[in-house]
Amino acid sequence: MQQSNGYIITFSVILTVVLGLLLSGTSELLGPIQKKAEELDTKKQILGAVMAAEELNRMESEQVINYYETRISSKVVNINGEEVEQDEEGNQLVAENVNIAKNYKRSPEDRLYPVFIYHAEGNEEDVQSIILPVYGNGLWDEIWGYVALQTDLNTIEGVTFAHAAETPGLGARITSGDVQARYRGKEIFNEAGELEAVRMQKGEGKDYSADPHKVDGLSGATITAEGVNKMLERYLSHYKSYLERKRTGDAPVALN
């Protein structure tokens, strides 16, 4: 059957409109639910730096949100460690809504750096650890994570890493609990007080428990491990001023 051009064009237009309406309708309908799911995911990742994954998985979404609200407070700082309350357009900044990936595209001096503070239930003064987001490149695509520091602002309480497309079974192992556990108790500043971060070593199966700046590597995923190293080094250095200010005890607010 050979149809006229007019028929084909009309058919295509109708089809496009119908499918377009269907898809935009669904997106509109599901949008709020998706946004909630995304926020929950971020909160879970942040909490993952200070909590065991099994414990977190047992919790219902409501419980996670409740726990997050009573235990985490947040703020945004700039490269100099000064607290920033408003963005360029004068809108109130919320640390949870700061998009790390988008900020990564700017130069480090212009980025916004969220800080999440894990405190005792209902008491924001009783800080238990400081959680800092990190972001960088793995082998195939972006990798990111959260590093929780103890109150000495030096010892790592825990880390959580995530990735977009690392190789399953190799680089993707950065998300596994036993790899992340290797960072626990490591230190980011050396004895002279300089930032040294923590580096994953090449090869796997060696014992680095004596060295506070080294962790066992990922066999077969050297580039991903290197990406993790760079990510930690860079972001910890970006947060260095904040950590140093916090250490000396003054908590300055930027004068905008």
Partner: peptide, 20 residues
Amino acid sequence: AIVASLVTLVNEVLKAFAFD
């Protein structure tokens, strides 16, 4: 077009109800 729309639907539904 039909297949792509259906696939997008599946993707959107997963994003809303099974984010992991």
